[in-house]
Design a protein around this nucleic acid. Structure first.
Ligand SMILES: NC(=O)c1ccc[n+]([C@@H]2O[C@H](COP(=O)([O-])OP(=O)(O)OC[C@H]3O[C@@H](n4cnc5c(N)ncnc54)[C@H](O)[C@@H]3O)[C@@H](O)[C@H]2O)c1
Ligand SMILES: NC(=O)c1ccc[n+]([C@@H]2O[C@H](COP(=O)([O-])OP(=O)(O)OC[C@H]3O[C@@H](n4cnc5c(N)ncnc54)[C@H](O)[C@@H]3O)[C@@H](O)[C@H]2O)c1
Lengths: 216, 216
DNA sequence: CCATTCATGTGAATAGCTTCACAAGTAAAT
DNA sequence: ATTTACTTGTGAAGCTATTCACATGAATGG
């Protein structure tokens, strides 16, 4: 029976991968949990705990082998392979995402684009011809798409997601600010930028230095 | 002494605000924690707990007054006012963010843009003239900027953040995939889209239905 | 070869967050 | 006025995540 890995632990694995990539470029042979922790502002114990749920990768007294651990984490995260990704809604944010090279580097290949705007359908974005949203179910299946990115207005997102789910896609990354309903076997993540700005304003209002006098 | 509010609780406040806005548009007078919970896939108890750290806003037997609670949460989150925001790096993602109307609606006004590309400096984006990055410190101070969005390549992000911090800005939203160092009194949030895709691939690899047979 | 230093891996302890469960308050119907 | 149906607000319980602390093992230097 596999142990359930927490969401935060998964996210930290991404950080470790990123840090290890940098250490590798600087020709480090090994790196300790202490060094990794400093780099990503975490605690050494947490890094060791996180890694220990997947095996023993380090050497006592020495640390972790950079290259090897990086590959191991890539395999754990599933970024040692290629993922077939489609994106729906080639507007402001959609276009930015299609141009983002980092995705490709981590194995996420955007190979299909969908929109409902006649001016966009048939046009070429980074070598991909934009398909008509009408054909989405058929084309997702044909291209064997595994992950779909949603970057359409919130009002139409649920309808599109229903189609995407019906086409058998099991993983969705949503940029529309709306709580989408998907079946239990579909993994949904939301990217909500307003939320992060609101986090900042909350802290500015409630915890910034000037307010301290009120707390006495 | 103020009680420390958890990050997840702050994020949920944003969800409540969004849900209440919808309920308000549908002319609901009141809404129960149960209804809110269903809307955002949370538990009623959690919503009541979250709200209770800021006061008693509901009426037993009836629920919460939609309009009033929405305003109250807006005030708690600090989105009942206007924030002066600057954005650095008018590339793919930067341009998308400048065009994003949702930010404005929640009080985040992007009023300054910076870049180091001569072709972009002086050009007009949504009514804002792009400034030379060289003058960032002076112009941030002059315009009394409170929040800065970083959308430059990771390699130059730390340098820019150092300037931003020196100019007295206390809140930063970073899109570059790098761990930026800021003093303790500066609030930093990172928006990392690769991380979310990696979360999806992790779950596809580790928990999707097809793998279940391996777990027996 | 032995002492010293370093750093992992992991149970145990602690801290933090979520859910439970219920007393208490409100509204509406009769 | 009383009953019924509802829903809040909140201590307490339960659960999850993080940190502590140390036994264990590896490398280095004299
Ligand atoms: N622009 C941003 O920086 C930003 C940031 C965060 C979130 N978002 C969210 O991302 C989504 C898109 O934002 P945007 O700024 O890119 O908007 P946009 O209007 O520029 O793009 C939306 C695209 O979706 C297409 N579209 C509309 N209805 C469709 C349908 N039924 N089927 C297929 N395509 C359809 C449009 O033709 C357009 O190309 C929105 O939900 C927005 O809230 C945007
Ligand atoms: N494109 C995306 O969808 C996306 C998604 C997530 C994160 N990001 C991150 O956002 C950042 C920007 O990505 P992008 O795709 O928009 O890249 P981009 O190259 O299109 O844009 C970068 C912009 O920054 C400007 N710039 C470069 N150096 C600068 C400096 N020293 N001072 C001021 N401006 C400078 C460039 O002129 C350019 O306009 C990167 O860190 C990237 O990893 C991008």
């Amino acid at each position: 029976m596999k142990k359930k890995i927490s969401d935060s632990s998964i996210h930290r694995l991404s950080l470790y991968f990123r840090a290890l990539s940098l250490f590798e470029m600087e020709n480090y042979e090994t790196v300790s949990s202490k060094e990794l922790a400093k780099h990503e502002k975490l605690t050494p114990a947490q890094i060791r705990k996180d890694l220990s749920s997947f095996g023993s990768f380090g050497t006592r007294g020495l640390g972790y082998p950079v290259h090897e651990l990086k590959n191991k984490i890539a395999s754990i995260l599933g970024i040692d392979r290629s993922w077939r990704v489609a994106l729906v809604g080639i507007g402001n944010i959609g276009s930015a995402l299609v141009s983002y090279k980092e995705f490709m580097k981590h194995g996420f290949q955007i190979i299909k684009l969908f929109d409902n705007d006649q001016r966009k359908i048939g046009s070429n974005h980074k070598g991909i011809i934009v398909s008509d949203i009408k054909n989405i179910q058929q084309e997702l299946k044909e291209s064997n798409i595994q992950i779909v990115i949603i970057s359409v207005p919130a009002t139409v997102a649920q309808n599109i997601v229903d189609d995407v789910v019906e086409a058998g896609v099991k993983a969705i990354l949503n940029f529309a600010p709306i709580n989408l309903r998907v079946p239990d076997d579909v993994i949904l993540r939301n990217e909500n930028m307003s939320m992060e700005l609101e986090y900042l304003s909350f802290n500015l209002v409630n915890y910034s230095q000037e307010d301290d006098i009120e707390e006495v």
